[in-house]
Every structure is written in structure tokens, then in C-alpha cells.
Design a protein around this nucleic acid. Sequence first.
DNA 1: ATTCTTACA
DNA 2: TGTAAGGA
Length: 122
Amino acid sequence: MRISELAREAGTTPRALRYYEEQGLLRPARLASGYRHYDPQAVGTVRHIQLLLSAGLNTSAIAEILPCIPDGVTVLAPTCPELLDALAVERARITTSIDRLAAARDVLDRLIQAGPAAGDQS
DNA sequence: ATTCTTACA
DNA sequence: TGTAAGGA
């Protein structure tokens, strides 16, 4: 598929996809026309990239992790042992981030006069 | 119509 | 990241 189709299916923009490529996150093939060509598995890859980016990982960290994620798998099973250390660091940072968000939510809860900070998924 | 690269009021 | 320019 070409860039616009991948963008649509993965919920992003061609601009972002070119940026990911520039950062070494994607290696699309090139058509004779010069247009980028992505295989269907790229949809899953892009979703992983977005998930990781939203979690605060930088592109270089994602570039290391990505090749450790098997095709089309939703749940990550095997990880590259050499990266466990770096992954633990990212995990800790995410935990810190979650705590920060929870603190912000508490402030809002008190402002909204809402009670339990635990039962609000609706 | 689409995509490509480069660049920035 | 958006967007414009200038080509293919």
C-alpha cells in the first residue's frame, strides 16, 4: 500500500509516516515511481510506534524496541535480552508519569467535587 | 489526483 | 507537525 492508505489505516498522517522513516522506524520499499511502498504489516508497526510515542519513549528508544516485536502480534512476548535494561528504565519512567497523572487527576477530582478516584470509567 | 523533497511568518 | 513550493 502507499503512504496515504497506510496513514488512514493506522490513524495518522503521511507527514508523520515520513518522519518515522527519517527516524529509522520504518523502511518502506520504493516503487519505480519513487513512491513509498508499505506492506500490510506496517499498519501494526505504526500502531506500535504511536503507542510507544504516546507513552513518552523517544524515537531512538522505539527504533531499538521495534525489531524485537514479532509481526502482527498484539501482545509482546519475546524481547531482546540485551534491551531488558533499557526497557526497565522506560517502564520506570512510565510509572513515574502515571503517578504524575494520578496526582493531576486528584486535583481535578477535588475541583469537581467527585469522590472515588477509582471508579470513573464511564 | 498523489506523492516526493526541501524548507520555514 | 502543518504547510507551501516546484517537480514528476
